[in-house]
Nucleic acid binder design. Structure first.
Length: 247
DNA sequence: TGGAATGTTGGAAC
DNA sequence: CGTTCCAACATTCC
């Protein structure tokens, strides 16, 4: 569920709910008083990376699906929803096992839209500058940094590094400028590719590195390790992915 | 079938 | 004060 492209799919799916008025909201969320939304009209749905945003005129609901979250549109699961919204026309949105938060400030004050790899305001130049400020950072950590590559998750990280042939433990400051450019371009390109494949239900079969045991380029066994400060699974080939270390 | 996983947060430890 | 580590959360899949 949770990487950026999946949230974009959700955002598209709920477009028909824009303009609908909430009849009743409930759920087992402890963070938010669901009665706040009753009678309010949805004016928009937005996303920032892995954040899904339900916008009302004065407040916004922020949903983060974490690792296990899920949703149903005009359907219900057996389990009780973390947040369920029933609209006046009897349609409904249900969210499960997710983090729910209320945002009262203007969204532009909360979110840097230029950091979201799937947003039309994505700014490669700004991302490049953020990378330049952290030369000591590992490539695998950089891709997972939501302030630089909002929406990128562990799958996208592994696929991007494999595609551009960069070892996950490479230091950002040691990677040649052309490779950094490739990193920036591929993070966006693969995210949209992920979106297409996910919609076709063919995402997994297109994985080249993530969850794979053999490198498809040279038939060598992939290394598998929990790398970087995030300690997330990395799949990488020491044959074709270059380790850049020196400055 | 137990363990691991597309993720983040908050607090402790250093 | 920054960083790093860890538990917690809670579901699905192999």
């Amino acid at each position: 569920m949770p990487e950026g492209p999946s949230i974009v799919i959700l955002k598209e799916a709920v477009q028909p709910f824009i303009g609908k008025k909430v009849r009743y909201a409930s759920g087992n969320t402890k963070k938010v008083d669901t009665s706040l939304f009753c009678g309010k009209t949805v004016i928009d749905f937005k996303s920032w990376g892995k954040h899904f945003l339900i916008c009302f005129p004065d407040i916004t609901i922020r949903i983060h699906f974490m690792l296990f979250g899920s949703y149903r549109i005009n359907e219900r699961k057996e389990t009780s929803p973390r947040l369920g919204i029933l609209f006046e026309d009897e349609t409904e949105l249900n969210f499960y096992a997710c983090s729910v938060q209320l945002i009262t400030e203007p969204l532009d004050a909360v979110y840097d839209w230029t950091a979201d790899v799937m947003n039309e305001q994505w700014d490669e130049e700004k991302a490049l500058n953020k990378l330049k400020q952290r030369p000591h950072m590992l490539a695998c950590d950089a891709l997972l940094d939501q302030n630089i590559f909002s929406g990128v998750g562990n799958i996208i990280k592994n696929e991007v590094l494999f595609r551009i042939r960069v070892h996950p433990e490479s230091r950002i400051g040691a990677i040649p400028a052309e490779k950094i450019k490739e990193l920036l371009v591929e993070a966006v390109r693969y995210s949209f590719q992920f979106l297409e494949w996910k919609m076709e239900f063919t995402l997994k079969q297109h994985w080249l590195a993530h969850n794979k045991s053999i490198c498809p380029r040279d038939n060598v066994r992939f290394q598998r390790a929990y790398l970087g400060k995030f300690k997330r699974r990395s799949f990488f080939c020491t044959n074709c992915q270059v380790l850049y270390l020196k400055d």
